[in-house]
Amino acid sequence: MRALILDGPGDLGRATAAELGAAGVEAVLAGRDPGRYEQMLDLRGDLSDLYRAAAQATVVVNFSGVPDVRLAERAGAANAAFVETGSDAGYLSELAGLHPRTPVLTGGRLLPVLAGMLARDVAAHDSADPAVPVEIGIVLGAGDPESAADLGATYALFGRSFTDPATGEAVLNFSGRREFTLPDGRRRHLAQVDWPDQQVLTAALGRPVRTYLATGDRFSTTLLRGVKRVPGAARLPSALHLPGRPGWQVVAQAGPAPGAVRSWAAGRYQTPCAAHILTIATRRAPTLEPGLHRVGDLLTLSDLSGLEGLALGRSALGVPQS
């Protein structure tokens, strides 16, 4: 198996290539700098060099950050599977409109993938009324570049409302609050947001899924809540990083009632865990049927058990389990 890795900013592409190599996959890093990459590729113009490189690969994995559906089209034309790791909503919508001749995977960001896995785990172990929402709480540590990127992607939500999956009412992003007990034992109030996949999860689980967000420190969380109505706040550059320490936490629970089923995950830096998930997705991608798939649908929590740097757990009726 040969994987063509379209590298980009950050360390995730190289970390995934290294883990693929350790698993016996020939991983070829590609980019514009001939002194840095094994395969020189310019992801501009007619992309003919991408087509030729993809024809020598089994799967193409895009870490470049270039939101161009032609990348997936060229990979498919060369009979290679395609894995997209970006999170640009408009671009992902365009990918969903394709009719690919090979498998195309999207939704590779770590925290949305984990949020979906934890929500499914809670729904599978909870016998409560299915009308009771599954609530996801996410805490981002801005000191990790990957978490900072996730936080930057939420700036576009400022001033925008969305439909609450449970009530059908309009909710302003960063307004409604819910108190969560986090994996580290702290209790925090998190703000309700239109996080990626909550509507998809609502349909898949047959019960409403809500998402709440905070940063690792209370000051920046208060700042986010304070600017939600400021005109033009949605145009803040995603590269504007708030201060904070590394460390992220995700928890899913079957409503706020005491004793509800809770599943959680926590870690310090995203890159090692994200590389592991994308390695699994990359190896499985060529075995899928042609068409659009989601990374999170290919994994279960058992695929992540024992992963260094990742803490997983579930509690039911107040009894914690690791």
Rank of each mutant, 00 (worst) to 15 (best):
T154K: 04
P112D: 10
S175A: 15
F158M: 15
A115P: 01
V132M: 08
L172S: 06
R160G: 06
F162K: 05
A119Y: 00
R207C: 03
V122Q: 07
S220P: 02
E169Y: 01
A148W: 11
G206V: 02
L110C: 10
V171F: 02
R218V: 13
A203H: 06
G159P: 10
V200N: 02
L151D: 01
L105R: 00
A166Q: 13
A166D: 11
P100F: 00
A148F: 10
R177Y: 00
I138K: 03
M117Q: 14
F158K: 01
F158I: 00
F219K: 10
L111A: 07
G185T: 13
L118Y: 06
R177E: 14
H125Y: 05
L118R: 13
D164G: 06
V193F: 07
V134L: 10
G116I: 00
R177W: 05
V139H: 04
V104M: 09
T102W: 00
I138H: 03
Q192Y: 02
L213A: 08
D194W: 02
A191L: 15
D121G: 05
T106F: 04
A142D: 13
S147H: 05
N173M: 01
R218F: 07
V132F: 01
R178W: 04
L157R: 09
G143I: 13
Y155M: 09
L151T: 06
V200R: 15
P183I: 10
M117A: 14
V113H: 00
A124G: 07
L105P: 00
P112E: 07
P165D: 05
L190M: 14
T221A: 11
A166G: 10
T181M: 09
L213W: 09
G137I: 03
A128H: 07
L224Y: 12
F180I: 11
P133R: 03
T221N: 12
V132C: 11
A214S: 15
V122R: 05
T154D: 03
D184A: 08
L190F: 12
L190H: 09
V200I: 08
G159E: 09
A166T: 08
L114Q: 06
V209W: 12
L224S: 08
L111K: 13
